[in-house]
Amino acid sequence: MYNGRIQLVAILGSIILIIFIFLLIRKRKLKEEYSVLWLFFSFVFLILSVWRGSVDWIAAKLGIAYAPAALLLVLVMAIYIIMIEYSMIISKLADTNKNLSQEVGILKEELEELRKEVEASKEKGKGKKQ
């Protein structure tokens, strides 16, 4: 009975996680691009909870004596991979950010020079009229 209850909780938890991610995407709070890994691992958790004995099977295959440790391994791997993806995203953002800042700096300088030129030619125009 105990085992059945934990399975139910695990299945419900996985489904809620999947629905939650879908909702976030639908509300555009999460980009599809960045949700792939979350969805993937949510489905992995769903499979693990539906297929009883999967954790034991993985533990046996990997030679893990204490089966729940296999579950933790899957969890840690999931978090690890998602964190790496985040580091990649941050690196890309930092690069874009840098390029934008440089562009802003260069454009501001150009604008300043143009403004000066316009002012100067205005002054010149006034001088001629008088």
């Binding site: 840098k98 800042s101 440089q102 802003v104 700096g105 260069i106 501001k108 300088e109």
Partner: peptide, 14 residues
């Protein structure tokens, strides 16, 4: 001198 102001501190390389 011409001066380019970077909007934030970006480090020497940038």
């Amino acid at each position: 001198a011409r001066v380019i102001d970077l909007p934030v501190n970006m480090g020497i390389g940038a």
